[in-house]
Computed example of a mutant assay.
Amino acid sequence: MASEPVDVVLSFGGRPPTRERADAARNRLKVLVAAEKLFASANATDVTMEDIAREAGVGRATLYRRYPDPVSIAQALLGEHETELQQRILFGPPPLGPGGEPAERLSAFYGAMVDLLERHLHLVLGAETGRARFRTGVYGFWRKHVEVLVRASRIDAPASVVDVLMAPLAPELYEYQRGLGLSTAEIADGLRWLATRTLTPPPVNGLRPH
């Protein structure tokens, strides 16, 4: 007699572990592998649910039961990498983690984001472009982090400067800059320049505050 499919425990994209039947787990992994391949080999924004279902060898109903659209699949794939970076920001050593000066921490954040964009741009383009970018929970985390740094910098800045500092991390802009021939080091250097000029307090009586 065939045994019943066993339950497996999964934790993906920083979410709490949930229990999942073995057949559902197999389908989930097939979908994610297929989607990763398609996002990497084509324009991520052109990938459709039908493309993913066909590549994964699953029915569209199976696909839609778990994911409403390609963006949600890209977000699931990207979640692991973004969660790891969030943990480094919250608990890691400075300057990315707590303890550094705001300008140094923003510079480190920019450098880490450039690295993430370079390694996973196809996923970010599928998950966080256009208005969809602002609806993701991780965008809210990044924005809050920058807001905290701006407030800690002791500069008199308008609230809108937070969004100005987030704007250079748009994946479409990163893709455009790489297409111009800018290297990752050049892009990161430009962002570090922006962080230093923006969050370094002005001198008081000719001296920088410590």
Rank of each mutant, 00 (worst) to 15 (best):
G137A: 13
L121N: 10
A167G: 02
Q177C: 13
V150L: 08
E128I: 09
A157G: 02
A127V: 01
A152V: 00
W142Q: 10
I155A: 12
G137N: 09
R178D: 03
A157D: 09
A103C: 00
F134N: 12
L123D: 06
V138T: 10
W142R: 15
P94F: 07
Y110H: 09
R131N: 12
A127K: 09
A127M: 01
K144N: 13
T136I: 03
G92F: 06
G99L: 05
E175I: 01
R119Q: 10
A103F: 11
L117S: 04
L116I: 08
S153A: 14
L85M: 06
P98I: 05
R105C: 10
W142K: 14
A108K: 10
R131S: 11
L96C: 05
H145E: 15
V124W: 04
A132V: 01
F109A: 04
F91V: 08
E101Y: 08
W142H: 14
L117V: 02
S160D: 07
H145M: 03
G100P: 02
M166L: 13
L125W: 04
T136V: 07
A152T: 01
Q87T: 12
P95C: 06
V124M: 15
P94N: 03
L117R: 05
E84C: 02
R151T: 01
L180D: 00
Q87K: 14
E104M: 03
P94V: 03
L90F: 08
R119E: 10
D115E: 04
H122W: 08
G92C: 03
E118R: 15
L125N: 02
L149E: 12
L117W: 08
D115R: 09
A159K: 12
F91N: 15
R119C: 01
Y110Q: 03
D115P: 01
G179C: 06
G97C: 07
V138M: 12
S160Q: 09
G140A: 13
H145Q: 15
R135E: 12
E175L: 14
G130Y: 00
Y139P: 08
F109H: 07
V124Q: 09
I155N: 15
W142N: 13
D115Y: 01
D156K: 07
S160N: 11
L169E: 04
G137F: 04
A170K: 09
M166G: 09
Y176L: 14
